[in-house]
Computed example of a mutant assay.
Amino acid sequence: MAKMKDVRVSIILECTSCVRKNINKESSGISRYITEKNRYNTTSDLELQKFCRYCKKHTTHREIKK
């Protein structure tokens, strides 16, 4: 019998402003958070306001592919 896919999946959230800055080498790194989301209730990519330690402020973090 095949296993069911998990309803809750682990995702990685990445800072959107650090990605833009990292092209110019202004930032020393990229802020990333690991969290979970419900596969069925949240089908689109997740966006949350999280604190970025490199920008030193709250910025938008988007889901990236794992």
Results as ranks from 00 to 15, higher is better:
D45P: 07
H58R: 10
H61W: 06
R53W: 06
N38T: 02
R32V: 08
R53F: 14
F51I: 00
Y40M: 13
K37N: 06
L46H: 01
D45W: 07
S44V: 00
E36M: 05
T42G: 06
L48E: 15
E36N: 08
N41G: 13
Q49N: 12
I34S: 13
T43M: 11
I30E: 11
R39T: 08
D45F: 13
N38K: 06
T43V: 13
K57T: 15
K37L: 10
K37T: 02
I34M: 14
D45Y: 11
L46R: 09
S27D: 07
Y33S: 08
D45G: 04
C52I: 03
G29K: 11
Y33E: 13
L48V: 08
G29T: 00
T43K: 05
L46T: 14
H61E: 03
K57A: 05
N41D: 15
T60L: 14
C52D: 07
T60M: 10
E36H: 10
Y40W: 09
T42W: 00
Y54D: 11
L46I: 13
T35S: 08
H61N: 12
R53N: 10
L48K: 14
T59G: 02
T60W: 14
Y33V: 02
S27C: 13
K37D: 04
Y33W: 10
Y54P: 03
I34V: 15
C55M: 02
Y33D: 12
T60D: 05
T42K: 09
S31T: 09
C55K: 10
N41W: 06
H58N: 15
I34Q: 15
K37F: 07
Y33L: 07
R39I: 01
C52M: 08
L46E: 15
N38A: 00
T59W: 03
H58L: 12
Y33N: 00
T59A: 03
Y40V: 08
H58Q: 04
I34T: 14
Y54M: 02
E47Q: 03
Q49S: 04
G29Y: 06
T35N: 03
T59L: 00
Q49M: 06
N38H: 10
D45E: 08
S44I: 04
T43Y: 01
D45I: 05
I30C: 10
T43E: 05
R62Y: 12
S44L: 01
